[in-house]
Design a protein around this nucleic acid. Sequence first.
DNA 1: TTCGGACGGTTGACGCTTCAAGTAATTGCG
DNA 2: CGCAATTACTTGAAGCGTCAACCGTCCGAA
Lengths: 169, 169
Amino acid sequence: MGTPAEARWLTSEETRSWLALTAVMIKLPYALDTQLQRDSGLNHFEYQVLAGLSERPGRSMRMSDLAVLANGSLSRLSHVVGRLEKRGWVRRAPDPDDGRFTLALLTDAGWDKVVETAPGHVAAVRKYVFDALTPEQIRQLAEIGAQVIQAIDPGDHCLEFQRGTDAHN
Amino acid sequence: MGTPAEARWLTSEETRSWLALTAVMIKLPYALDTQLQRDSGLNHFEYQVLAGLSERPGRSMRMSDLAVLANGSLSRLSHVVGRLEKRGWVRRAPDPDDGRFTLALLTDAGWDKVVETAPGHVAAVRKYVFDALTPEQIRQLAEIGAQVIQAIDPGDHCLEFQRGTDAHN
DNA sequence: TTCGGACGGTTGACGCTTCAAGTAATTGCG
DNA sequence: CGCAATTACTTGAAGCGTCAACCGTCCGAA
């Protein structure tokens, strides 16, 4: 039995940390998707798209920027926006400045959808994450997350998207 | 534009933390899957299944226990084990003690696959997570993760699976 | 001992994501 | 100017996960 021979395995502290992290990576997205799906018929990615647009001046964004903001591929975004368009929450228009870009626009119905969906989603985020942590841990989490993202993708700037300039309070 | 009115939005510290966490939830699984897929033709879940079995006495486990260990549904596991069986790395047998249970058994070929795959995977985990963090942060992460999992699913015991009793060093 | 319910697992259909190949608009180089 | 390369996006097919319905095994009560 035992374990395959390996160069440098994990210490028990690292293993503990790793098990917790993998469990969070699986369970948290699932929990959030479940709440959103049940209460609004949206998955987390779709919500991020609508919420992202809602917080921009003009309620619009280029597809490629929106993809970065939502941490998804352009292809995925294209499919999703297609669905959201069919449901009347988003529409597309070519960017007047450069015909290669496509602008995604949040419709009035889409705005209403965000307004109706956001409180429940924020409550879930609170319940599953922030209410379970101390302010100190929240600070630590931000730091840890930033460093991991840096290690995965040094060129990534998604954390600099501070979601518009409006103050949430 | 501004933001839809909400009961209790996130503080800026919480938002920072939240953006980092969502990015990690998306990017880390993707990064790990990419490495595994490229080097071994396995995804992370499949690897967890094989690795989980490899660390058990008898290289076998009941399907339902294996599903908990791998943080997945029984249905998902059934599909995956079906695929792994077709590739010759796992086989199934009814539990002699109780015919309702099914045992998943790691074959010799499956064992070899784990031995050949594990070092690269562990190296990726190191690269993306532990090498980017201080020992103190690793400890903090374990704590934070455990509390979030507790908040999501109070009845969950997946962290108590300490992956067999063998010491990895 | 037999029948009902609970438990463990499997299956197939559907939906979503990815991947690769494609189109359309623009830039840059000769 | 004209054509190739680049950029931004779209599309269709294939693979994976979820959900709901299903089957087989076991236990317990009458």
